[in-house]
């Protein structure tokens, strides 16, 4: 796996180019006008399902809840033949071992949040220990949060160094950097935070923890996708994208796929480079696939409760 190395010399993040907010919103709105029907829709729905990071990040999570979710990841809906599994399970570090065992041999990755998720308010030492623990338990991917307070205070080097340190602690695990765009306040800042994360070594940039509203929106995701595109043109390094939170309907997920295809192109159209962080999206996708198969509108009563 070709990870994002940190050999590229970072620019001055105070001079990040500003974003045309009106233009971004108009462009993002246009992606929702495409019509995807029949076999293309079937294929797109399968792709969405295969890109989901099935997530449970609750205070009430138990080992059994995580095992149940792992089963769902491997068997999304056994009545439907020829559907893919999800991409990964996303849990707290203390459930990584349980998830790893439950998913053994399935090829489904285990992602763990780390670094004092979701607020990120803790010391560097604790965040590193959190990360090392998740990796030592077997996490394939680490989802870290940036220090938004330091970012707002203009301490971009602090944020950069922290991401770089966590990246080092990840070892072979891929690092997703959560910007928590709902707390950043403007698209300019989303663009700046995206660049800091990528230059510091992020393998993925991710919109949100899912704990703050607004979470992922199409304009925010578009700004991040464009940052990924520009970073790729400058450095040749491919970085993945993960919108998370608030994407619970298939139709919206298909809009995101259109945006991905038209911004980054075919190379990003797999779960190696694009993920949806979601808990209820999977069931809606399954309902849509079943609707496409049977021709009948579906009821949530016939799909597993997560």
């Amino acid at each position: 796996m070709a990870g994002n190395s940190t050999t590229v010399i970072p620019p001055d993040f105070r001079r990040t180019a500003p974003v045309d907010q009106t233009g971004i919103e108009e462009r993002a709105a246009r992606f929702t006008k495409r019509s995807i029907k029949q076999s293309s829709k079937r294929q797109a729905l399968n792709m969405v399902l295969n890109m989901i990071d099935l997530t449970t990040l609750e205070g009430k999570d138990t080992d059994q809840k995580v095992r149940q979710l792992c089963y769902k990841a491997m068997h999304p809906h056994d009545e439907l033949p020829n559907i893919p599994t999800v991409a990964a399970i996303c849990v707290y570090p203390n459930f990584v071992r349980v998830a790893k065992k439950a998913l053994d041999g399935s090829g489904i990755k285990v992602a763990s949040v780390a670094t004092a998720f979701p607020s990120g308010q803790s010391t560097r030492a604790i965040k590193l220990a959190d990360t090392r623990f998740a990796v030592s338990e077997g996490a394939d991917e680490v989802d870290m949060v940036i220090s938004r307070g330091k970012f707002h205070a203009g301490e971009y080097n602090f944020v950069f160094d922290e991401i770089a340190a966590i990246k080092e602690a990840c070892g072979q695990a891929r690092l997703k950097v959560i910007l928590e765009t709902g707390e950043l306040g403007s698209l300019d800042k989303v663009r700046r935070a995206s660049e800091i994360a990528m230059y510091a070594g992020a393998d993925f940039i991710k919109t949100s923890t899912g704990k703050i509203q607004p979470a992922a929106t199409m304009p925010v995701t578009l700004v991040m996708l464009e940052a990924i595109r520009d970073f790729y043109y400058k450095t040749g390094i491919q970085v993945g994208m993960k919108p998370a939170g608030g994407i619970s309907k298939s139709k919206l997920a298909l809009h995101y796929l259109v945006m991905l295809r038209e911004t980054l192109g075919q190379d990003w159209m797999s779960n190696e480079w694009f993920r949806f962080g979601a808990s209820s999206l999977a069931n809606d996708v399954l309902m849509q696939i079943r609707k496409e198969t049977t021709g009948q509108y579906q009821s949530a009563a016939y799909f597993s409760v997560d």
Partner: peptide
């Protein structure tokens, strides 16, 4: 017919 087939 769509109402009749609707599972919800």
């Amino acid at each position: 017919p769509w109402m009749a087939g609707h599972l919800d």
